[in-house]
Amino acid sequence: MSTRFASDRGLTSRMVVTMFLLGLLYVVFVGALIALGVRALSVLLIAGVMLLAQYFLSDRIALFAMGGREVSPQEAPELHGLIDRLCAMADMPKPRVAVADSDVPNAFATGRNQKKAVVCVTTGILRRLEPEELEGVLAHELSHVAHRDVAVMTIASFLGIVAGLMTRFALYSGLGSRRDGNQGGLPIGLIVMLASILVYAVSFLLTRALSRYRELAADRAGALLTQQPSALASALTKVSGEMARIPTRDLREAEPFNAFYFAPALKQGHTLAGLFSTHPPLQRRLENLAKISAQLGRG
Rank of each mutant, 00 (worst) to 15 (best):
Q295E: 15
E130R: 15
T237C: 02
F276N: 05
R284L: 12
V118R: 05
T154V: 14
V49Y: 00
K116A: 13
P280Q: 09
T123H: 05
L216K: 08
A65E: 11
M19C: 14
S277Y: 04
A65N: 12
L289C: 08
A53N: 11
P247K: 05
F158N: 02
T122W: 08
A254L: 06
A151S: 15
L194G: 01
Q227N: 11
L232S: 06
R212F: 10
V152G: 01
L198H: 00
V119C: 02
A294W: 00
P256L: 10
A265G: 09
L175I: 12
A47P: 07
L232T: 10
L126I: 12
S42Q: 08
F108Y: 15
L159G: 02
A109I: 07
Y200G: 04
L82Q: 14
A290N: 09
A90W: 02
A233I: 05
P280F: 07
M193N: 04
H80A: 07
R178P: 06
A139L: 04
A53M: 13
G164S: 11
E242G: 00
H270K: 14
L45M: 12
A209T: 11
A156T: 07
T271S: 12
S293C: 11
R69Q: 13
G23C: 09
M166A: 10
V49F: 11
S177V: 14
T167V: 15
E135W: 05
V49H: 01
R220V: 00
G160P: 02
F64A: 15
G111A: 03
I292C: 06
H147Q: 14
G23R: 03
V30H: 02
P105A: 07
A35S: 13
L24K: 05
L24Q: 06
L251W: 08
A35F: 10
S177P: 00
R252H: 14
A263K: 01
A6T: 09
G274E: 12
D149Y: 02
E70H: 09
G124Y: 04
F56W: 14
V104L: 06
L45T: 11
N258T: 13
Q74E: 14
G31D: 08
G136N: 06
D219W: 03
Q227P: 00
T12N: 13
A231P: 04
A146D: 09
L186K: 11
G181T: 01
A90V: 04
P73D: 08
K238D: 03
I292Q: 04
M50A: 15
C87H: 02
V30Q: 06
M50R: 01
S102Q: 11
S2N: 10
L190N: 01
M153E: 03
A273R: 13
T207F: 05
L45A: 15
T12C: 00
A209Y: 15
A233L: 03
M193R: 02
S240R: 12
D103W: 09
A88K: 12
A273T: 13
L36A: 07
P77W: 03
G37L: 03
G68A: 15
F257N: 09
I246D: 06
C87N: 03
M15W: 00
A139I: 08
